[in-house]
């Protein structure tokens, strides 16, 4: 009797549990998004660009605006996340100090995303980039 009851309980728990955690465990999908025209970027200067991403949010379709710093070195472009790795505030480029500064707890990053000061534990995240006929594409 206990076996039957346990089997029923396990079935219910599995089906309902799978539904509850399902979307949380799904693999994150990335796509290539157009971010900027290569010729618009200044050499060595992190330029913030807003990438408009149409995404599926459960039953909804939303458009997320993601700010990414693009840094051009000749014909190569590096894309840095603008999200501070400490607690997720938005970093901004301070041209005078030549640092990406976080307004929340004083995190500082250089133009390669490396931590220069403050509490951030790891460098800024990097995204893959490629150039397609003069257009900078970023993988998000």
């Amino acid at each position: 009797m206990a076996i039957i009851q346990a089997a029923m309980g396990a079935t219910v728990a599995f089906v309902l549990g799978r539904t509850v955690v399902g979307p949380a465990l799904g693999a994150k999908r990335t796509d290539w998004w157009p971010a900027a025209t290569l010729s618009d970027l200044t050499e060595g200067e992190p330029t913030p660009v807003t990438i408009r991403r149409a995404q599926t949010d459960g039953y909804r379709q939303t458009v997320n605006r993601e700010v990414v710093f693009l840094i051009r070195t000749k014909d190569q472009v590096t894309a840095l996340s603008s999200t501070c790795t400490h607690l997720g505030c938005r970093v901004a480029w301070d041209a005078e100090a030549a640092l990406l500064k976080c307004p929340c707890h004083g995190g500082r990053f250089d133009r390669n995303g490396a931590v220069k000061a403050g509490p951030p534990p790891v460098p800024l995240a990097r995204f893959a980039t490629r150039i397609e006929s003069g257009q900078v594409m970023v993988e998000l």
Partner: peptide, 8 residues
């Protein structure tokens, strides 16, 4: 789209 959603 939800895993097991149609089932539930």
């Amino acid at each position: 789209h939800l895993p097991f959603g149609g089932f539930v």
